[in-house]
């Protein structure tokens, strides 16, 4: 059993997202340790891309900051290798297909495996196009995460049946970003997915408060929180680790106790 699957066994998973290299590599390293201490179960690290079409304004801005600060895939591989000496937490890269394709799929996965990246999320590579990276992922032992959306309809069963690691369930239409209210679409997707697979389902897109994390955790196996954390980093810059740790602790507590903190 790999680290990703293991992470979902003991409790509802808290999966924070940060953009790698925002505002710089040193802060990204601090943020990873802070999130581990606050009780994260897996961490998603965004490899910044110039044109992230699935992201809302908060993460778009983070990608721009990271790229301006000189973040590259190679620097992130080096950072992950360094972090791996201190933590076993499952780490995933979330990025777009072009940075991986241009780097070379096989070389990218080899570096993922060597540095200690467990899985990869590529939001602009749907199920039909997964052949672009699936072979390289499999050869290097990197789990390719499948995504489901409220519009997946009859595609849910086909995609879920082949899913590995966990299934990333998009909570609602649109792009990433904080939402005041999150509908119930995720519950329907998860119910359908569970008819064909035991792979855990995590919900993301829009979850930005402890109360929302609690509500989504009640119907899923994990919750993904991105923009709300990235916004804290944007506000606090180099001093972002402390407020992010505090916020992640609140998310953890709300998920575990079912109460809002």
């Amino acid at each position: 059993m790999n680290r990703i699957t293991e992470a979902f066994r003991r409790r509802k998973a808290l999966i924070p997202f940060i953009t790698g290299g925002d505002p710089d590599m040193a802060v990204t390293e601090e943020l990873i340790y802070a999130l581990v201490q606050a009780g994260a179960d897996l961490i998603e690290i965004g490899v910044p891309f110039s044109d992230p079409i699935a992201e809302g304004p908060v993460i778009q801005a983070a990608d721009e900051r990271a790229l301006r600060a000189g973040c590259t895939a190679d620097k992130l591989f080096a950072l992950v290798a360094k972090v791996r000496r201190r933590t076993d937490i499952p780490l995933l890269f979330m990025t777009y297909l072009n940075p991986v394709f241009t780097y070379g799929g096989r070389r990218f996965m080899e570096n993922c495996a060597a540095s200690g990246i467990d899985g990869l999320i590529v939001p602009d590579m749907p199920w039909e196009e997964r052949g672009e990276l699936l072979g390289d992922c499999a050869a290097c032992g990197v789990t390719l995460i499948s995504m489901l959306a409220p519009t997946s309809a009859e595609r849910v069963r086909r995609i879920a049946a082949e899913a590995e690691g966990f299934i990333y369930c998009v909570s609602s239409l649109g792009v990433t970003g904080e939402r005041r209210e999150i509908g119930t679409a995720a519950a329907e997707i998860i119910a359908r997915a569970r008819e064909v697979t035991n792979v855990p389902c995590a919900v993301g897109f829009g979850i930005s408060t402890p109360a929302q994390a609690r509500d989504m955790a009640a119907l899923a196996d994990g919750v993904i929180v991105g923009s709300a954390i990235v916004r804290l980093i944007a506000e606090h810059g180099a001093g972002g680790a402390e407020p992010v740790r505090e916020f992640a602790r609140e998310l953890r507590a709300a998920i575990d106790t079912g109460k809002e903190y």
Partner: peptide, 21 residues
């Protein structure tokens, strides 16, 4: 095949948009 012109083309979009396309 899958909207290809030789090696080019395809359909590389977020899952959310797949139903619309």
């Amino acid at each position: 095949k899958q909207g290809r012109f030789g090696a080019y083309g395809g359909r590389y979009i977020p899952e959310t948009l797949m139903s619309a396309v």
